[in-house]
């Protein structure tokens, strides 16, 4: 692969049942590039959790995926309420998701910790009332 490949998705925030469509598509695209199943799984789980977060908390947003020979970068951007205390949000089990989301199988406070667990690098830039940008990277072993 020469250069880089980019994928862009608009994540619809109005319908929880459709959340994750971008991640499913990215998984298919990465398979076509012949990357290892383990790398694909880590990228798609991290992106899926991020997508779910954007739908639950921020009314949707955008997802950009950049694939180079060295790494896969996922940038999730939303214009939601922002994260007031990032350190607290990173704690396993801490969640501000409403009860109806828990009844759908999410909102256990595992999303952000999972995203960190499955990626080699994660950075959160967030401003209350403005929005959040989450950047994650997964290295591709030589």
């Amino acid at each position: 692969m020469n250069g880089q490949l980019t994928f862009h998705f608009d994540v619809d925030g109005s319908d929880f049942t459709s959340a994750g469509q971008a991640s499913v598509q990215v998984k298919k695209d990465l398979r076509q590039l012949g990357l290892s199943p383990e790398i694909i799984r880590r990228v798609s789980i991290a992106m899926y959790e991020g997508e779910i977060n954007m739908v639950i908390h921020a009314g949707g947003g955008t997802a950009d995926v950049v694939v180079t020979e060295e790494e896969i970068e996922i940038i999730l951007t939303d214009h939601g309420p922002g994260i007031r205390d990032i350190a607290q949000a990173m704690q396993e089990g801490f969640s501000t998701a409403p009860d109806n989301i828990r009844s759908l199988g999410f909102g256990a406070g595992m999303g952000l910790p999972n995203m960190k667990r499955y990626t080699d690098h994660m950075d959160i830039q967030s401003e209350v009332g403005v929005g959040t940008v989450v950047t994650m990277r997964v290295s591709i072993p030589k």
Binding site: T17, S18, V24
Partner: peptide, 13 residues
Amino acid sequence: LVNPQVIRTAEMM
């Protein structure tokens, strides 16, 4: 649990 996220979760895993 029955909603489309169950299928997507299984797909991711």
